[in-house]
Amino acid sequence: MPVKTLLIVYHSLTDGTRQMAEAARAGAAAEGEVAVRLLHASQAGPDDVLAADGLIFATPENLAAISGQLKDFFDRSYYPVLDRVNGRPYASLICAGSDGHNAARQIERIATGWRLKAVAEPLIVCTHAQTPEAILTLKQIAPEELERCRALGESLAAGLALGVF
Rank of each mutant, 00 (worst) to 15 (best):
D72N: 09
R105P: 00
R25Q: 10
L39V: 04
A65I: 08
H101C: 09
H101P: 01
F74R: 00
R18F: 10
Y90I: 11
P89Q: 11
G68L: 06
R76L: 14
A142C: 09
F57Y: 13
I66H: 01
L162T: 10
A24Q: 02
F73V: 00
R109E: 10
H128C: 12
A142T: 07
D47Q: 15
L38D: 01
D72Q: 12
G97M: 08
G87S: 09
C126N: 15
R115L: 09
L152H: 02
L156I: 14
G54T: 08
D99K: 07
K139S: 07
Q19R: 01
V49Q: 00
L93G: 10
A24W: 08
L7T: 06
T14L: 00
A111K: 01
F74I: 13
I141R: 02
C126S: 09
I94L: 10
L160I: 07
G159Q: 10
A23V: 03
T59M: 08
R25Y: 00
T59L: 04
A65E: 13
T5G: 01
A35L: 08
D99Y: 14
S67F: 07
H128L: 11
A51H: 08
E144D: 15
T127Q: 02
L55N: 03
I8L: 04
A28C: 02
V3E: 15
G159L: 07
S12F: 04
Y78T: 10
A23G: 02
G100C: 10
E154P: 01
R109M: 13
Y90R: 08
A64D: 15
L70P: 01
Q140H: 13
S98D: 14
